[in-house]
């Protein structure tokens, strides 16, 4: 059995998670899909869809629609859409190599934070820390830029990546939605 690797990234600082935490994650996997997104999350939504490229836009629109309940700014909404798009694209082309598979996206809220998980049961990542390096890509042949994780890091407040070779990958992202103030333009304004 391959070892589970976990990396957390907060404000651009990447840290390898201790084995203990990764093991806990491993044990919880498998039962996760039917659960609420994570402990302490409210209003959980879980969505499973085929690992097809055309579902990328569907997934990011669902995430954006979900986040809308916190009345985010247009910029925050764009951030969430981009991050989800990257995570789902990774699952489609790297996780399943554009073959058949299922992707699960879980959404939850905690106060003014949106929590998003994207999970696949595909190939997994051999070296998570390297994979998160900007410009790192295993699919230069497909003109992948290697900026996926870098964008997730840049656009979200917190990013956790767990992966196990031949078992799959789980990406967890957190985004704080700013409070209404000083008349910032909100996505839901004018509706």
């Amino acid at each position: 059995m391959e070892q589970i690797q976990g990396v957390v990234s907060i404000a651009g600082e990447r840290q390898v998670l201790p084995e203990e935490k990764c093991r806990l994650f491993g044990a919880a996997r498998g039962q996760r899909t039917k659960e609420q997104p994570a402990k302490g999350m409210e209003n959980g939504v879980s969505l499973q869809f085929a690992a097809q490229s055309r579902n990328e836009s569907f997934a990011r629109m669902v995430a954006a629609a979900y986040a809308a309940q916190l009345n985010p700014t247009l910029e925050e909404l764009a951030d969430i859409k981009t991050a989800v798009s990257e995570a789902v694209t990774n699952a489609v082309i790297h996780g399943y190599g554009e073959g058949d598979g299922t992707i699960c996206m879980r959404l939850g809220l905690s106060g003014h934070e949106v929590w998003i998980e994207v999970e696949d049961w595909g190939a997994g990542i051999a070296d998570v820390l390297s994979a998160m390096e900007p410009m790192y890509t295993t699919r230069a042949d497909m003109e992948r830029s290697g900026m996926g994780f870098a964008f997730m890091e840049a656009f979200m407040d917190e990013l956790e990546v767990y992966s196990q070779k031949n078992c799959g990958t789980l990406v967890c992202m957190k985004k704080k939605i700013s409070q209404e103030d000083m008349g910032t333009r909100r996505a839901c304004d004018g509706q």
Partner: peptide
């Protein structure tokens, strides 16, 4: 368009 992700970067670079 109003949306692009890292895939777009790949297209432009290519």
């Amino acid at each position: 368009i109003h949306f692009m992700d890292s895939s777009g970067i790949g297209v432009i670079m290519g």
